[in-house]
Design a protein around this nucleic acid. Structure first.
Lengths: 190, 190
DNA sequence: GAATATACGGAGCAACGTTCCGGTTGGCAA
DNA sequence: TTGCCAACCGGAACGTTGCTCCGTATATTC
């Protein structure tokens, strides 16, 4: 309720700038990571610094706005995989890979989280809110099918994946986050 | 060779300041993390900013100097555990816990690594140089005893542990890095 | 077309990393 | 002991960043 109204209550230029900022941020995040200087994002969008802070008071607000629909896509893939995969555990594997791929492409995401406590909390909240229930369903299904034996909470597994992928951001030919994830999943059914 | 000589070739005040800096940094790192402002460390040591940069050109140099003997202790514990534990795999478990404990107590260590590429490389180098061989021996022993089946390189495992613990720095009652590590190790012998 | 609320831009402040150089001092030779 | 010089010290100064604040511009409404 009211969301639509609130949005149309905004001035046209404000809406335009918000979109420009979102596009600019997405572009800059790819090249410079989410720690990119605020000035650079503002310049890329062709707006002043005040504008960026008015629309997104916190850096986390901007990051969340940029990635929200990607997180949504990840969340929606959960039930789909559960329906299409050979077994619930296979679905778990695939979903974990999907989530990992998303994380790895987000340069320096973990970095921003750690350097700014508020940002961490916000990002954390978004991920948890959307993904914990999804992963929870997959884990329950895998447990009921008898493939999953480890007593691990969705939150715990989600964080483990996040941490493992956070460290794998930089290109290192000798380190393969997927292998670590595979071993971790193996450990969950041992 | 010559290390002793090189050290005594330094002037007395230089040696004194280096020690003061080391002590100050160790103290400040505990409270503020390894990202603590340079000025604060200098002030704590009672020296100027120039002094800190002369002795430790890079932040990583300082961090390494502070933690080097702790890393050494970790490295030396490897053979000891291998000799005392019930089995090589048990030694692996214990050594991983030891290393994890060391990492978790170093607030923001991963943080500094990521924010400064040079620092990352230096720290990385120290860890690899000292710990990869040690972990390699343990893994080989565990593999020969038949307990370890996964084909995982020491470097790969070391990084996985590092990443998992790096994310577990802040106190979160709902997340237990040890559980993740246990599952990962289980996966290595499945 | 005028009035008003809303949004914009960028100057300005504080905090930080890092460099640089004039002043100081420890150690050695005479 | 004294004097000299290389080594060392301190902190001012510069560039970059995050964030705030307010005079100006403009979209919307009547």
């Amino acid at each position: 309720m009211g969301a639509e109204q609130a949005r149309s209550a905004k001035r046209a230029d404000a809406r335009r700038n918000e979109k420009a900022l979102l596009d600019a941020a997405a572009a800059v995040f790819v090249t410079d990571g989410v720690d990119a200087p605020v000035r650079k994002i503002a310049a890329e969008a062709g707006v002043g610094m005040g504008t960026i802070y008015r629309h997104f008071p916190t850096r986390a607000d901007l990051v969340i706005a940029v990635y929200r629909h990607q997180v949504d896509a990840c969340a929606e893939a959960g039930p789909a995989l559960l329906a299409s995969a050979e077994s619930p555990f296979a679905a778990l594997r695939e979903w974990v890979n999907l989530f990992a791929e998303f994380l790895v492409t987000k340069h320096g995401l973990a970095n921003a989280s750690r350097s700014d406590p508020d940002g961490f909390a916000a990002l954390h909240g978004l991920f948890l809110e959307r993904l914990v229930p999804v992963l929870g369903d997959i884990l329950t299904a895998a447990r009921e099918s008898g493939e999953l034996t480890a007593d691990i909470a969705p939150y715990q597994l989600l964080r483990a994946i996040g941490d493992i992928c956070a460290g794998a951001e930089r290109d290192d030919p000798d380190y393969d986050a997927r292998l670590t994830l595979r071993l971790l999943l193996d450990g969950c059914r041992a």
